[in-house]
């Protein structure tokens, strides 16, 4: 089985089978990162460019490590150092990169739909590493991978996503993915952070964190993206932490074996109390580890996907 599209633009377009393919492939790749020599020749001779119009440490590093562990050549371009500052349009930048024959361009951009614009214009694969408030598909895939790894399944789980849903691409991608995989998802946050019509995506909506996390199998806390808000829409960080933060007390409302997740970077003491972020429920660092495996799987499926089998010949999935 192969992915239907040359690009990964969002989770919305993926089928359940495709999501399972990616997660299964990632499971096979995870082992490479535990080896003494963390390198496989799978993508030797392939070129992966990361084109980031927004600052990122985790996602960009994760993609680069994933590419390098598969022996691809990687080039990183960030908005601050590229021709972007000279006023070149996104399309011109993309066309110029295309002229150098890369295999995959990983793009992050503050404008929703920017990766879609490129995908229509270039021959090579585009991976969306986050576009505006739209999607961040690899984050959702690594989240689903982590949930599946910890719980053995996604279907039937009760999952609360808490925070600034309106500005969160992580929320949208996870909503698409988790509902497709059969989870019961509730989003929670103050009304000014809740986008109109979010219920149409098949989720429950709450304005109380306690209500949302009650009996939850998984709690996904979102970063409160104050840097994405053009004006201050919430009274204070203090009020947010008190009424919408996850702490040692309210986490008890969830299932005893609840898993607490966060896409990072964590605002300690704002959306999540330090002792919860570092506590026994937290899988935040597992998410980061799994991110590399998931991105290796994607790079493989998109660039090396001409092989009909996954790396270990596991065609039974």
């Amino acid at each position: 089985m192969r992915l239907a599209s040359k690009d990964l633009l969002g989770i919305e377009q993926l089928s359940v089978e495709e999501i399972n393919l990616i997660l299964d492939t990632a499971a096979a790749f995870k082992e490479i990162s535990t080896r003494e020599v963390k390198k496989a020749p799978t993508l030797r001779g392939k070129t992966v460019i990361t084109l980031f119009y927004e600052p990122s440490t985790r996602t960009r590093t994760s993609f680069e490590i994933a590419a390098k562990r598969l022996s691809a050549d990687t080039i990183n371009i960030s908005a601050s150092t590229s021709s972007v500052v000279k006023g070149e349009t996104l399309i011109d930048t993309a066309k110029n990169l295309e002229a150098m024959n890369p295999d995959i361009v990983v793009i992050r951009h503050s404008a929703s739909g920017a990766p879609h614009l490129l995908a229509r214009l270039v021959r090579h694969s585009i991976i969306n590493a986050g576009d505006g408030a739209h999607e961040h598909p690899t984050q959702a895939l690594l989240d689903m991978f982590t949930i599946r790894e910890k719980r053995g399944r996604i279907a039937g789980l009760q999952i609360a996503i808490v925070g600034d849903i309106a500005h969160s691409r992580v929320a949208r991608s996870n909503i698409h993915g988790l509902t497709k995989m059969g989870a019961k998802v509730t989003v929670a946050g103050p009304p000014m952070m809740m986008p109109r019509g979010i219920d149409k995506l098949g989720v429950g909506v709450s304005h109380s964190i306690n209500e949302a996390i009650k009996g939850a199998d998984i709690i996904m806390m979102l970063r409160v993206q104050f840097e994405r808000q053009k004006e201050q829409i919430f009274p204070s960080i203090r009020e947010y932490a008190t009424y919408f933060g996850l702490n040692r007390e309210n986490v008890k409302l969830a299932k005893k074996d609840v898993i607490v997740m966060h896409p990072g970077p964590v605002n300690r003491g704002v959306e999540i109390a330090p002792d919860v972020a570092d506590g026994p429920y937290s899988v935040i660092l597992d998410q980061v580890t799994n991110g590399v495996a998931v991105r290796m799987a994607l790079l493989y499926l998109l660039a090396g996907g001409k092989y009909e089998t996954s790396p270990q010949g596991r065609e039974d999935h």
């Binding site: 576009d131 505006g132 408030a133 999607e135 691409r169 986008p195 019509g197 995506l201 004006e231």
Partner: peptide
């Protein structure tokens, strides 16, 4: 302010800021 599409389910799905 800052809106790029009609506020509602479509803008929310596309991650676009809404004009109500």
């Amino acid at each position: 302010a800052g809106g790029a599409a009609n506020e509602g389910a479509v803008a929310t799905r596309l991650g676009l800021r809404g004009i109500p």
